[in-house]
């Protein structure tokens, strides 16, 4: 760790009494880094799974058979209208209890780790919102655009791939950005199944060192920075995919 930084925080602790030990203590710092890495990795996977589910679900809802539409409709309603924390507990404790344990030579480990369960549960939860977001994007493409494709003899598949989806994704971007941000924040819930992400790790730090206000400040800052970064990524994507004269 940079000496100047650790010296500064050590002094802050000694003179002012603000104990940011994660920035001067080597062990606490490695804990902090670990938590940050786990949080970012968790966010990445949860967001990826949710976007994948959203695109698949929305496409199936727009072209699939009726029974499939109903199943997806039910999926969306169930996961949107129940507490994400209970979903997480249900997946991890309820379903996790049914999955086999693997013998690791001497000790056993569950086949699916708590991290993976968090990805599955939160990904499915976020996917339910994304299905609706992408579907309203598809609905927002004017009916006449489909008619034009029909008149030009494009098949349903060609219409969707070349015309409807590219437009629908662009229309969905702002709502998607909002949901991705909220999903990134929701990853802190993985705390309840002991995934060592940021919230969990800093909790351990403040339990050990009794520096609650300082660590809560760090926690706030961490999420504010992450939210800002995600916002910047989406602004970049929106700029890159914007079409002169379309939207706005």
């Amino acid at each position: 760790m940079e000496n100047a930084i650790s010296d500064f925080f050590k002094e802050l602790d000694e003179k002012v009494g603000l104990n940011f030990n994660i920035f001067y203590d080597q062990y606490e710092f490695s804990r902090f880094l670990n938590g940050a890495a786990n949080s970012l990795e968790l966010m990445f996977w949860v967001i990826s799974v949710s976007i994948g589910l959203g695109i698949i679900g929305a496409s199936a809802q727009s072209i699939g058979p009726r029974w499939l539409k109903n199943i997806i409709g039910a999926y969306v309603q169930i996961f949107r209208n129940t507490p994400p924390m209970v979903q997480l507990l249900f997946f991890y404790f309820g379903l996790g209890n049914l999955t086999p344990q693997v013998d690791m030579g001497g000790y056993t480990e569950p086949l699916i780790s708590s991290f993976t369960w968090a990805v599955i549960a939160l990904g499915i939860f976020g996917g339910a919102y994304n299905v609706e977001i992408f579907r309203s994007g598809i609905d927002a493409v004017p009916k006449q655009t489909r008619e034009a494709c029909e008149s030009l003899c494009l098949s349903k598949m060609q219409t969707n791939v070349h015309v409807i989806l590219p437009l629908a994704l662009r229309i969905s971007l702002p709502a998607l950005a909002a949901n991705v941000v909220s999903l990134a924040k929701t990853t802190s819930l993985a705390y309840v199944i002991s995934v060592p992400e940021m919230t969990y790790v800093l909790n351990q730090v403040w339990s050990d060192s009794m520096n609650v206000p300082e660590m809560i400040l760090v926690l706030f800052l961490f999420y504010v920075v992450v939210v800002a970064a995600i916002g910047a990524i989406f602004t970049f994507i929106e700029k890159r995919t914007s079409i002169p004269g379309f939207g706005q």
Partner: peptide, 15 residues
């Protein structure tokens, strides 16, 4: 708007 609910909950509970 940008802080996770759980973080807000912890801060109120502990602070």
């Amino acid at each position: 708007r940008n802080a996770p609910w759980l973080v807000v909950l912890f801060s109120v509970m502990y602070l």
